[in-house]
Amino acid sequence: MAQAKARRKTEAGSLSDDTTAAERHGLLRSMLLQRRFEERCAEAYALGKIGGFCHLYIGQEAVGAGAIAAIRSDDYIITTYRDHGQALARGMSPRSIMAELFGRADGCARGKGGSMHLFDRSLNFLGGHGIVGGHVPLAAGIGFAIKYRGGDQVCLCFMGESVVNTGAFHEALNMASLWKLPVVFLIENNRYGMGTALERASSIHDIYLRAASYDMPRAFVDGQDVLAVRTATLEAVRRARSESVPTLLEVRTYRFMGHSMSDAVAGTYRSKAELEEYMKRDPIMVLRMAMQDAGEIDDPGMARLDEEVKAIVQDAWDFADASPEPPLESLFEDVLVETTT
């Protein structure tokens, strides 16, 4: 990342929200960890250490970091196949994630899920799901279970903007609103469903307006500004927790990489010029500049933070590399569970 160049071009974010300096530092660290982790994912993919599909989150880190900062540890998260960033933001071990990506026995899903299917039951991280739209009804079901038990948790459901054209999205949002389920439906609008621009796929371009069909509260927010994402999510979470009312929150972001590791970053469906324009608002730089203006971080401080997260990522890589392949006898494990009741 050409940081000096980006710094010149990046407009600093505002610090006018209610975060503390320590919280802002934590958000910066979370985004930087996601970035450095995924840069190494790209490297590992090129080396053949990661196989299959690998969808990077680079450019969208503020969404995962900001939204997850707005929920409690006993709340639930469910997401799509572009799930590395959110898993890290939730506090999943970088070692167990990298080992999963490498297809090793110490992976969070014992090498059975891979990049698209990260799970951590202990953190209520209910997975990366691979069918566009398929997990949105699951989110409504998690909200239903919360309400059924009379709890005050919420379910935070991440999805890409292309989900809004699926039937599953419509069916789930209708019932969530009808039954007042405590769910935050968070759309990461990164402008493209694979290679198809939003304007070529959806009859409505202001995605959050879709919520009007379900009489559901809605909002949109700048997804490159982590503090704005956090603030908007906090309001949706408050509404879910205290009023049991779902929200459709559109977070406008942009992915700096290709749809997956299998396609070019720019070319056929978007221009290099467009990509470069969006990269001027790198979410890490937006927060860093604001913090720098406020005297909360300087260049040596940033360098130290960068070294710290790079060391964590290197450790994760080394751990994954040393982890054994899953034993062949595990092939037939976890197809069904032994029923004990």
Binding site: A140, A145, A172
Partner: peptide
């Protein structure tokens, strides 16, 4: 009506609601 739930005509939606509820400990 919390335990005997009439749904709209929306098989994909309510089947998924069942799976989500089962993920977090209910038995739909």
């Amino acid at each position: 009506e919390m335990r005997v739930v009439d749904t709209p005509i929306t098989e994909l939606g309510f089947a998924g609601i069942g799976v989500g509820a089962a993920m977090v400990g209910l038995r739909p």
